[in-house]
């Protein structure tokens, strides 16, 4: 049985399509990533899977339960870490976790056991009686992830788990999540628009404009580009271009200064070029394909462009959250 099964999922907001027919499935124990720019439909999909939104059409199953028909069963079998902090700052770390355990109807003994264990895992045992409002962003994140795991969910959803954190903290959180997979064997479903973050996943679905445009392991996605990029700066780019074409049969592209060529195996090709070219080479640069390049190749845009065009990531996330909150409560 697949941990998550989604078929032809569609969600419209007042006629505007946010998700337009998405299908995928996630196996048990897999770390599956949803990668795409803001507004691509990632959070909407996660909210449908977590029973916070109902889909316009299509089906979603989590742990074999129907997200629309059996929301209660879905809810007890999943853990969720939201994009933004959902802890109560007026409560201590311990009290926040206790609140969670009681919502999930755990016994007092089990609650104490699990909290102690989980606070040790997230490295916050020493701070258990401190108010959460005094915690740093990274500490809050760790506490939230720990909280999401207290009731041993079969599937853990992480919505942009490291949004707004500094690189060092992001790195620690990723180490931590990697460890969780080993120790707890949970299935992890995450969304992100950080490319380096997506590398952690076993499989990635690239989502753009509400559609999945590619779905494979990070390695396979990058290999699909079939090539490394080599940048050359020479004393005479024009002559170099002619020589590359003539001697090596390599097509290259003139940049503002220098040349760019795509080759199957950069490490092997560069020494040959250097010894073979008559033109003096001033600079060589080799770039292995990244998921950024994959996204660029598939959509013709850079994922980061979207972000700056949207005017930063925070306000957008905020709007989406409020919209969702309204949908739920009203």
């Amino acid at each position: 049985m697949a941990a998550i099964e989604v078929r032809d999922l569609v969600k419209n907001y007042n006629g505007f399509p946010a998700v337009r027919g998405v299908s995928f499935s996630v196996e048990e124990g897999e770390v599956f990533g949803f990668l795409g720019p803001n507004g691509a439909g990632k959070t909407t999909t996660i909210n449908i899977l977590c029973t916070l939104l109902s889909p316009t059409s299509g089906h979603a199953f989590v742990n074999g339960y129907d997200c629309t028909g059996e929301p209660g069963r879905v809810r007890s079998s999943i853990g969720l870490v939201f994009q933004d902090v959902t802890l109560d700052g007026e409560l201590t770390a311990y009290e926040n976790l206790k609140f969670h355990c009681y919502l999930y109807n755990m016994t007092r003994r089990l609650t104490e056991e699990r909290i102690e264990e989980m606070l040790a895992v997230v490295g916050l045992w020493e701070r258990k009686d401190d108010f959460v409002k005094n915690f740093s962003g990274g500490m809050k994140r760790r506490l939230e992830i720990g909280r999401g795991l207290l009731h041993r969910p079969k599937v853990l959803f992480l919505d942009e788990p490291t949004l707004g954190l500094d690189p060092q903290t992001r790195f620690r959180i990723w180490q931590f999540i990697g460890g969780l997979k080993e120790k707890e064997g949970s299935t992890i479903f995450m969304t992100t628009h950080y490319m380096d973050e997506a590398e952690v996943c076993g499989r990635i679905a690239i989502i753009d404009n509400g559609r999945i445009i590619a779905c494979a392991s990070p390695g396979a996605l990058k290999n699909s580009l079939k090539g490394d990029t080599v940048y050359l700066k020479t004393a005479d780019d024009g002559r170099a271009q002619v020589e590359l074409e003539g001697k090596f049969g390599l097509a290259s592209k003139r940049l503002e200064s220098g040349l760019k060529l795509i080759v199957p195996n950069g490490e092997k090709v560069i020494p040959k070029i250097l010894s073979g070219l008559a033109v003096e080479v001033n600079e060589v640069n080799l770039k292995k394909p990244s998921l950024d390049d994959v996204f660029l190749h598939l959509t013709g845009r850079e994922i980061r462009d979207e972000e700056s065009a949207a005017g930063g990531e925070r306000p957008k996330a905020e709007r989406g959250r409020k919209r969702v909150a309204r949908m739920i409560m009203r």
């Binding site: 209660g72 959902t86 969670h100 919502l103 409560m329």
Partner: peptide, 13 residues
């Protein structure tokens, strides 16, 4: 609702 804590309750069983 404003600070997101409501969702912690809404996604629980």
């Amino acid at each position: 609702r404003e600070f997101g804590f409501l969702r912690e309750m809404l996604v629980s069983p």
